[in-house]
Amino acid sequence: MALRLKLVPDTTTINFFRWQWLTFGSSIALMIASLVIVAVMGLNFGIDFRGGTTIRTESTQEVDVGTYRSALQPLGIGDIIITEVFDPGFRADQHVASIRIEAQENAEAATPETVARVQDALREIDPSITFPSVESVGPKVSGELVRSAVIALVLAALGIGIYIWFRFEWQFALGTVVASVHDVLVTVGILALFQIRFDLTTVAALLTILGYSVNDTVVVFDRLRENLRKYKTMPLRDVMNLSVNETLSRTIMTVVTTLIALFALLIFGGDVLRGFVSTIIFGVILGTYSSIYMAKNLVLWIGVNREPKANPKAGTKFADIDA
């Protein structure tokens, strides 16, 4: 026998419904908690969504946030947020900070004068400072970006729901959509809790989570559909347990390879991507959890029509494809 790393034993008979009230209940609780956290703490919107200017500074001297702040205070340009940026990829003498300035009043567009004044003030205290990136977004665009982001998420959830409905049954579609909404919602809650910056790429991350979560759920449902045909008299709950157990090894393998790639990005991918990647990591873990514990519970409660269908091959339409 060849040596194999096995994350999951060959056959498992875990009863995934044993703690169903606890698991499902905590999912519901997490969703409510996320909503509350977002409502109370708010999201740390980046300039994409609230307008304003971000200036990235780079210097050979250490960043002293206090000095920066006192240099910029006299300019009277409203709220300034200064954060030092760390990354293992930086050189020893590479000190990076990010300065965020609020959208200036009665200015739709970016204000080059303000940016120039900030840059001059910083050059005064640190002649070696450079500005690798300056980004400004006006409040008009940022409002539209919020709208299109919400539209994107809703459209994606709807599109997925409709596809699953066509390929499976409406119960499965509902379970899938609810599970993926759960993943996205709780991820947003985590972003609010840790005040991770929420910008356009975060929306891309949320859409990716949606895709991944559905991907995972579909694999379980695909097996469930197959087993429902195979074991016509077995209670639905047992067929579900069997299907999750049979696909458990794959579920774990895929989440591990995906996380391997994501952690490589998190550690080596640079600070610009960090928020994006950590968001996807939260979502992938949640997605795995919800496809095991959440989606199928919903389907179980709604029930599935197990009468033989007119076309028994409907579900394995693609199984005839031959290479």
Binding site: A152, I160, G211, V218, T316, F318
Partner: peptide, 22 residues
């Protein structure tokens, strides 16, 4: 095969929407 195709099509859907709206 059927699991692979269903799983990939749904992910592809989100990519299409990201492209259209983003």
């Amino acid at each position: 095969l059927s699991a692979i195709i269903d799983a990939n099509i749904t992910t592809f859907l989100t990519a299409v929407i990201m492209f259209a709206v983003g």
